[in-house]
Design a binder for these strands. Structure first.
Lengths: 192, 192
DNA sequence: TTGCTCCTCACGTCACGTGAGGTGGC
DNA sequence: TTGCTCCTCACGTCACGTGAGGTGGC
């Protein structure tokens, strides 16, 4: 009959000792017994339960849900449970994609505004969120004008540095992201 | 010189009164003055600042970051800020995609196990997380065997209902998701 | 007098992180 | 005696939600 100390178990599972304390306190995983000095002793059954807890947590369940599943789950419909999680993650995915799309567009706009300041950023963001559409013709022209004026004051070294930074950034984007960005650029250009 | 009551502002921005109380308490947005009875009076400048707060929050910034950007942002590099947010959302996106992929695979496996119980679910999840690879030959055969036996006990109505439920589910998936699911199915099938 | 909006505490959420102060066996 | 692991409080995190109990003008 082997038993585990809390530290060993933490090491083996990648959890922290504090997390195991937490699971104990909320009644999710209470070790079968205590050793001398009040040390928690985890039995093999405890370890099996912990594995289940970790597995379910990896699927996005909260600790309370995990407790329900493990303790009174007999009547639950597993497919309904999975579908629920799927719906949740799908929503999160959609939100993250929207945010990402907006951030990429924002990056493109900052590229059009040389010497972009925090104020520029705030202006653009306010514009994007309140208008919910690409820049207007005047706004674009204002940006282009600012850009020309600023570029005149830049040294060749500064221009080289900016270009290099941009390449570093682009190198980290996937083909899809590049494509998406170009579409945004195109949408921003005034009709020629 | 117009001024706003807290409730009007909440209504207009979609925030709650409590959120505005919170912004006041943490010093993010303190109304310029107070009316009779201590009522907060928001000036037009306050409203403008609030719009900026809302806009920045929509881009994933925390309240503390927003305060920094708005109050001491002059020296910040807006591109670095945006790239940072982009990195964060990219990570979240990847995690959500992994989870989603696993959930879809899980759903496929549950389809292979007729009369799937919560115990079945836990077993499969444990298998997926600890092994990090598709089902082994024996596991697949066990599932198939269970399925045959269970199917024999099902009524035609039950079978029809299951099939209908599956169609409803499939109808909500995108083409990419369907494709991904099929790849998972294929990977799960034992070599013929 | 009844409603409505407003106010200030102050605890709760979620899954722990992070000390603080102390014990017990090698 | 020094280290190491373990223990129990108990506050902090993040952006508010949710009562509780009270005030002031229409």
């Amino acid at each position: 009959m082997t038993s585990w100390q809390i530290g060993e178990l933490a090491q083996a599972t990648g959890l922290t000792v504090r997390a195991l304390h937490h699971y104990d306190r909320i009644g999710l995983l209470t070790p079968g017994s205590r050793g001398p000095g009040g040390h928690r002793r985890y039995s093999e059954a405890d370890v099996r339960r912990l594995h289940q807890v970790v597995a379910l947590r990896g699927f996005g369940l909260g600790l309370a849900e995990i407790a329900t599943v493990l303790d009174d789950g007999a009547e639950l419909d597993p497919r309904a449970l999975v579908r629920q999680q799927l719906d949740q993650v799908t929503e999160r995915l959609a939100a993250a994609n929207r945010l990402r799309r907006d951030l990429v567009a924002l990056l493109g706009m900052l590229d059009n505004a040389v010497e972009p300041s925090i104020d520029t950023l705030i202006e653009i963001i306010e514009g994007m969120t309140t208008m919910d559409r690409p820049l207007t013709q005047e706004q674009f022209e204002q940006l282009a004008e600012k850009r020309r004026k600023a570029a005149e004051r830049l040294s060749p070294e500064q221009l080289a540095e900016m270009s290099a930074e941009r390449e570093r950034l682009m190198a980290r984007l996937s083909p899809e992201e590049l494509e998406e960005m170009q579409r945004h650029r195109a949408a921003m250009l005034p009709p020629t």
